[in-house]
């Protein structure tokens, strides 16, 4: 879908949330859910930063690093892509303490989700870098630039443009993945919803609000990434 229909959906979602927030059946749940949404957003942002850092490191290591580092990157990617995000979360939360390493739930959430998405992102980085035409590399060589300069100044800036749309999808996956942290006792949006559901049994209103809340956040990410993509394309001097 284009940006305009997405923006219309975002507007409708916001309007629906606003309208429901004033409704007496829904109003009591708003403060708790807003707090939960704040936790969800914090995990998403922190996880996204970690994911981008891990993806760039692993993706570039897989392409340019010496063999042992390259193997490490491949192992990381396959391990985190090959097992379930929930299993990773549980492993870090329940199993790691038995090896004497205890990490608080928030850090576990950011680590597990960030590294999980980062593993998928590493493949995105690798694909985008490989998609930059080879003659760009040759042109860099002809200008007597060092390997590092070629990667940092010539290849990456062009690869970033191709990375933006898949990263948009990955950030949505990350946002949706944060709902799993409710299962390791973090009070995110999903956790608050379950808790309120158990105490009030008002299942319909609560989950309606939660769905709208997630929808609002996803659409914001999608639209933001689309706008960023347009800018990046313009920055390269190609048609928007």
């Amino acid at each position: 879908m284009g940006v305009t229909p997405l923006a219309i959906m975002l507007g409708l979602t916001a309007a629906a949330l606003w309208w429901l927030a004033g409704h007496e059946d829904y109003r009591p749940f708003m403060p708790g859910l807003v707090e939960g949404a704040a936790v969800t957003m914090r995990i998403t942002v922190a996880g996204a930063i970690l994911a981008v850092a891990a993806a760039l490191t692993a993706g570039l290591a897989r392409l340019y690093a010496p063999a042992p580092l390259r193997w490490l990157a491949v192992t990381y990617v396959e391990l985190f892509r090959g097992t379930s995000a929930l299993v990773q979360l549980f492993w870090l939360f329940f199993v790691l303490p038995q090896f004497g390493v205890t990490i608080d739930a928030f850090t576990v959430a950011v680590l597990a989700l960030g590294l999980n998405v980062g593993a998928y992102g590493a493949e995105v980085v690798r694909g985008a870098v490989l998609a930059v035409p080879l003659h760009q590399w040759e042109a860099g060589l002809a200008l007597n630039l060092s390997r590092r300069q070629i990667v940092a100044r010539i290849i990456l800036p062009q690869a970033v443009v191709a990375m933006i749309p898949p990263w948009g999808n990955l950030f949505i996956e990350l946002l949706k993945g944060t709902s799993l942290v409710s299962l390791i006792t973090l009070a995110d949006l999903t956790f608050r919803a379950q808790q309120m559901n158990q105490t009030t049994m008002q299942t319909g209103p609560i989950f309606t609000l939660v769905l709208l809340g997630y929808l609002f956040m996803s659409l914001t990410i999608t639209i933001g990434m689309r706008l960023m993509e347009r800018r990046a394309i313009r920055g390269l001097g190609r048609r928007a």
């Binding site: 879908m1 229909p5 997405l6 959906m9 949505i172 946002l175 949706k176 993945g177 944060t178 709902s179 799993l180 409710s182 999903t190 919803a193 379950q194 559901n197 299942t203 319909g204 989950f207 939660v210 769905l211 997630y214 929808l215 996803s218 659409l219 999608t222």
Partner: peptide, 23 residues
Amino acid sequence: ISVGVELVRSTPLLIQIFVLYFV
């Protein structure tokens, strides 16, 4: 259909499971 697809893809599966099971 594309609105429906967007709605389903934009919300977490866990919540959808809860909605189907509890609502």
